[in-house]
Design a protein around this nucleic acid. Structure first.
Length: 199
DNA sequence: CCAGGGATGGACT
DNA sequence: GTCCATCCCTGGT
């Protein structure tokens, strides 16, 4: 059985905006508390490190929290927000380049019973994991998984050969970053255009 | 030490 | 459309 897991080299390129687009259609898995769960990545946002006012690492900010982002690409960056939500990011780029991609949505496929249990939902559909905090809840991801390698067996991403054509990717401004000034307008959010995949 | 705010989601009008 | 739960993170005393 071929290893479909993305190699660490995949994450270590400079072009975080391209990587955010290329993550669409990949399979995100977690194996947490002995439960395998996962789905297809459908929505991402790029956060372009020190030059991006929306990034936690803007202007080279280094804190206990943001230190994770300065690590070499291929690890997770999980942080807590709004007093109740965990958000999962993929750290990308070479060492000391604090780029990250926020995973904002997946289509649930693996371990659906577990994901229903974790979220308290009744039925499997795209709405189960179509938000950045919804998918971490379904996948069981918390800050305990902050900084872990994506080449391990806890959280990883696989390439199953699905290629999302550029024209089937919608690019929009990112969500919830009004504080970022002119950078709030950058088209760094990428969503699969479902219309082309439902028939 | 402490105040202010947040890369959200669910409930409700 | 509005409201708000809830607590970590940050920067400033």
């Amino acid at each position: 059985m071929p290893d479909k897991k993305l190699p660490l080299s995949w994450y270590r390129k400079e072009q975080v905006v391209t990587l955010a687009q290329n993550l669409l259609g990949k399979y995100l898995y977690s194996n947490i508390n002995g439960q395998l769960t996962g789905g297809i990545i459908t929505e991402t946002e790029a956060y372009a490190g020190v030059t991006d006012k929306a990034s936690h690492a803007y202007n080279g900010r280094r804190t206990t929290r943001t230190e994770t982002m300065y690590h070499e690409g291929g690890i997770s960056y999980v942080y807590f927000t709004y007093g109740m939500h965990h958000l999962f990011n993929v750290v990308t780029g070479p060492k000391a380049v604090p780029h990250a991609v926020l995973v904002r949505g997946i289509y649930p496929l693996t371990g659906c019973d577990v994901m229903l249990q974790r979220t308290g939902k009744k039925s499997i559909n795209y709405q189960l994991t179509n938000g950045p905090a919804k998918l971490t809840k379904a996948l069981g991801i918390t800050r305990q998984q902050n900084g872990i390698s994506l080449s391990g067996n806890t959280i990883w991403i696989e390439d199953h050969g699905i290629k999302i054509a550029k024209e089937h990717i919608n690019a929009t401004p990112r969500i919830g970053i009004d504080y970022a000034g002119e950078d709030a307008l950058l088209p760094y959010r990428f969503v699969i255009d479902y219309q082309h995949y439902i028939h």
